[in-house]
């Protein structure tokens, strides 16, 4: 006979436990704790957390669109805010390619199409876009919030004009990255900032909430964002990371750091840490440990529940029948 939600339904205990857990999960995620800690307890908290995060991203994106719509920017400002952290014009490739000679390499219409929606162009199977994707370690250029074909055209024109004049936008913004090796103090400082042991000056969220580097103790970092173990290489070294961190372009990062930007020292420390990570031996991600720890935690919680309610009613009729059957007819 199947169990049902009628009086004395024991399954109800489990449902209630889940409610409690998912409640905990939600409240935890709102205070900004690493969301994955609860993931292995049950799927429900994960869902709840993910929903909260997605909700906030959606909200902030909407906000950005709104702001972008309000302010009619000049192409120069637009370039500085949205392109300069990944691209240079004649300064060599950073995270993305050097834009010098862009207009002669590609068709104008293609450029506009790509700037408006890079993912769509890649998805359409465009050979040029695919080749670009491959040469930049699978990093898709993030779409600029609120971009229109008109703005894209203006940007393309601006780049062409700049490459001719060899103008101000030659290099990425921010201070030029030092070339001498980082000190171990800087690396330590970077790790402390990453893991949240030291707060960011402007109050930005610690990286650990969403990212992992593979050398964090216990449960490691979050798995919502990509692993940053090899980010140093992926982003084209110090320079690329520096420009990227100074003004992160992806919607998720932008929503978190546009208003609470990292200071120069913080960026240097983080780069030091990332460089150190990339140089160190590549440890496998802590996922196996997660699973083990999660299973052990689940088992422990179940054991506590069992001990707490070990005196609970277990149903008697079925037991009487079972006892009789095993005893046999006397």
């Amino acid at each position: 006979m199947k169990k049902r939600a009628v009086p004395g339904e024991r399954a109800l205990t489990d449902v209630c436990c889940l409610q409690v857990l998912s409640f905990l999960g939600q409240s935890w995620s709102t205070v900004g704790a690493p969301s994955h800690i609860l993931c292995f307890v049950h799927a429900a908290p994960l869902e709840a957390t993910a929903m909260t995060v997605h909700g906030s991203i959606g909200l902030s994106c909407g906000l950005l669109f709104f702001i972008a719509g309000l302010s009619a920017q000049s192409p120069a400002e637009d370039y500085a805010q949205n392109c300069a952290m990944c691209h240079t014009i004649g300064g060599g490739p950073l995270v993305g390619p050097d834009l010098a000679g862009m207009s002669s390499r590609r068709e104008r219409a293609w450029l506009v199409r790509f700037i408006v929606d890079p993912q769509a162009v890649i998805d359409s199977g465009d050979a040029t876009a695919r080749a670009l994707l491959q040469s930049y370690q699978g990093m898709v250029m993030p779409a600029i919030p609120g971009i229109t074909p008109k703005r894209a055209t203006a940007l393309v024109d601006y780049v062409r004009q700049q490459e001719g004049s060899g103008g101000a936008a030659k290099t990425g913004q921010g201070a030029p990255a030092a070339l001498e090796p980082f000190t171990s103090r800087e690396v330590e400082r970077g790790r402390a900032l990453f893991s949240g042991l030291a707060p960011f000056e402007a109050g930005g969220t610690a990286c650990i909430a969403c990212h992992d580097t593979g050398d964090l103790p216990l449960l490691g970092g979050g798995s919502l964002g990509p692993s940053l173990t090899h980010v140093f290489k992926r982003f084209g070294g110090r320079k690329g990371l520096e420009t990227w961190l100074a003004s992160p372009p992806t919607p998720e990062m932008a929503s978190l750091y546009r208003r609470r930007p990292l200071t120069e020292q913080e960026i240097t420390a983080l780069i030091a840490y990332f460089e150190d990570r990339a140089a160190g031996e590549a440890k496998p991600a802590a996922h196996a440990g997660f699973l083990l720890l999660g299973s052990a935690g689940t088992a422990l919680i179940l054991l506590i529940f069992h001990l707490l309610w070990r005196e609970r009613f277990h149903g008697v009729r079925a037991r009487l029948v079972r006892q009789y059957r095993t005893r046999g007819v006397q």
Partner: peptide, 14 residues
């Protein structure tokens, strides 16, 4: 401890 569920209730089978 039993706020969501009373552990001494007869089940439908009983």
């Amino acid at each position: 401890f039993n706020i969501f569920h009373n552990p001494h209730m007869p089940s439908i089978d009983d």
